[in-house]
Amino acid sequence: MKKLINDPADVVPEALAGIEAAHPDLRVDHANRVVHRADLPRPGKVGLVSGGGSGHEPLHGGFVGLGMLDAACAGEVFTSPVPDQVLAATKLADSGAGVLHVVKNYTGDVMNFEMAAELAESETGSRVVAVVTDDDVAVQDSTWTAGRRGVGVTVLLEKIAGAAAEQGRSLDEVAEVARRVDANGRSMGVALTSCTVPAVGHPTFELGEGEMELGVGIHGEPGRERVPLAPARDIAAMLVEPVLADLPFGRGDRVLCFVNGLGGTPLLELYVLYNEVHRILTGSGLDVARSLVGPYITSLDMAGSSVTLLRVDDELLSLWDAPVRTPALRWGV
């Protein structure tokens, strides 16, 4: 294992210390591993809290700030935060207007956030509503699984719901917007390499030089299918077609197209992929209203990409365009 770290055991706390040092408008509760806005609580504003295992940076700590999350808690690498952490983040974010939990659909995350919401409601009377993202079309038979995984849509949801909260909307209204984003977004990912968890020290799975893993999630868990490595134009089709078929998206739909890097793929390649994806979308009669290209929800050092399509309307677009000032997304301010 070659990693730019000190000790594998210190990766998460040291990265949080780095976030705090680099971004003066953020604070870190080191005991609970919570990144939060320095200006909390913000009276009257619904609090947005998310979190999850580390290893997906910039998700979630890099999305804390004006127009997005109020607080994000970091678990161990690929491990959900524990209820104490989520509770601490919830208390920080709650100004009395209630708190929205943004939870990716993984068994551990859902259970830990659920326990935290029960604790918050009993300890402080905070009103907590959870929205669970489950946009990964690679998980087909969701009746027989833990349900679809939350992946790329989580980034878009945190931005859009964050803008709605910043406008002063109520908890129920913010939750409704958030659910609308999840319902209208779909994703599919591919891995060209495995990733290496620092505490483990070797790749989570083995992929041959000429192979790729289709339908991967963001935790180094193997995907649905191992197939021969293909050119970007073919990979684009393999990712986009199941996404388009699933909602389904139709001609004339306006979409936000998010081509995400999984951590080990350079932006140069992501733009090669974006070009192919964009061509397929416009060829299918879709109107690509907005785009996002870059590594925003990653899987440590995994090479690969995911494509997320979000069907948008005027309201979702205006919330997407609203000002945001976080370490990873920043515009309009």
Partner: peptide, 11 residues
């Protein structure tokens, strides 16, 4: 609950 994380912690 406070130290394990993942699904195993709550379970």
């Amino acid at each position: 609950v406070s130290t394990v994380g993942g699904a195993s912690g709550p379970l």
